[in-house]
Simulated assay, not measured.
Amino acid sequence: MGVLRLFASRLAQGLLLVLAVVVLNFVLVHSAPGDPVETIAGASGGMSPELMADLRKQYGLDLPFHTQLGIYLAKVASGDLGYSYYFNLPVSQMILERVPATLLLVLSAVFTAFVAGTLLGVLSSRKPNGLLSQAITVLSLVGFAAPVFWTGIMLVLLFASVLPILPVSGMRSPDPATGSLADMLDVLHHLILPMVTLAVIYLAQYSRLARSSMLDVLGSDYIRTARAKGLAEGVVLYKHALRNALLPVVTVLGLQFGNVLAGAILVETVFNWPGLGRLAFDSVLRRDYPTILGVLLFSSIVVIVMNMVTDLCYRLIDPRIKTS
């Protein structure tokens, strides 16, 4: 019952936050410089003033700002995200078509960073002053300091000219493989470089955080008691210490999911990955307001859901945490 009450409370807070995000996104996007109709006119080689006025009327851009906001909120409440100014397709359809590619990239990068970073943090905490710990620390600092787009560009240069063994663009080969298994392997082959690029910076953060948390836990009384009982070092590290040390890492993972989505925009642009990030980048250049707002809304919902899942995961990791 306590879990259900917690879930209901988080759900109500999430809905209010989504409403605030929708309003704020609409205000910011429409306050940005640029005119969608002028962008369309420039892309098509020019338009008459009459046609541009008709387009503004068709898109509702001639209405007062508060009226546009009210119409948009009513459409979002009914599940209608509108039509793209540039692609002339339903925004919800374009988002659904690109969600799998973005989720594949983001979830694989987060999983890789979380697992590898935690393991590196545990290894470096065993001998904090050892050579392995110092090497992991240096690699973590380098990975954290390198901008994600710079890492992607360096990997593109490396594997496009020096070691041409991995694809550096797209999600599939120009000649698609036949068969579901061959297609899956082709996608995974293209996924390696974007996933590594996005995972490196977060792997560095998780390894440093896991190392610091493990050092604190390993100095606790119950760890000394477990070792005094003669338990194997692996049992002490991974069964007793790691479970408590994971709480800060899980917290940061949930809170940084929005940053991962933001990083995915840069990664998808560098590697031409056909996901939401690439769609958002193209829509910003074309002043495609409905598409921009749709992508922002979807990303906000994903971040809010991840924060709710993080709260619920605390009880699974540490039963001492109460829902109150």
Rank of each mutant, 00 (worst) to 15 (best):
V99E: 01
A210K: 05
P176L: 12
G263P: 04
P319Y: 09
Y314E: 06
M154A: 14
V148N: 01
Y222L: 09
A264K: 05
M184N: 06
A177N: 06
Y85H: 12
P176N: 13
L15T: 15
G230L: 07
D216L: 04
T102G: 03
Q68A: 13
V217F: 00
V138L: 12
V267S: 01
S173D: 14
G275D: 01
L191A: 14
V142S: 10
P128C: 09
D183S: 08
I165M: 13
L96D: 05
I304F: 04
L203E: 08
G254K: 13
R243L: 09
L139G: 05
V99W: 02
F65W: 05
L16R: 13
G179K: 07
T291R: 01
Y85C: 09
A245V: 07
I153K: 08
V187D: 04
R227W: 11
R208D: 04
A264N: 07
R211A: 11
I304E: 00
M52V: 01
P164V: 04
P164K: 12
G230Y: 02
D183A: 13
R224A: 12
F114T: 10
A264F: 07
G152E: 02
P33L: 11
R208V: 13
R227S: 04
V250M: 15
S161V: 12
L139C: 06
L246P: 01
A145L: 10
L279V: 10
N272R: 15
L276G: 01
Y86H: 02
I304N: 00
V115N: 10
A20Y: 08
S108L: 12
F65C: 07
V267D: 08
V21Q: 03
N272W: 12
S180D: 06
I301G: 03
Q205N: 07
G170N: 13
H240T: 06
L81N: 02
F7K: 05
S173V: 03
V76R: 08
I265N: 03
I153N: 03
I136P: 02
P274A: 15
G2M: 14
L203R: 02
H66E: 12
L55V: 03
Y202S: 14
L123P: 05
M195P: 00
L166A: 06
V21I: 14
A101T: 11
F111E: 11
L4W: 05
H30N: 15
T67S: 10
L246V: 09
I95C: 09
N25R: 07
S212N: 14
L188Y: 10
A264M: 11
A8M: 09
P274L: 08
D35K: 11
F281L: 09
T225F: 13
V217W: 00
L19P: 05
I192R: 05
V18H: 01
S283D: 00
E268I: 13
F159M: 04
L11M: 15
V309Q: 06
T39W: 07
P174E: 15
Y206L: 08
A262V: 12
Y85E: 07
A241M: 00
I317S: 04
F26A: 06
R287D: 01
I201W: 10
L96A: 09
L188W: 09
G46F: 13
A116I: 14
S173P: 02
L55N: 03
A210G: 03
R98C: 01
S124P: 08
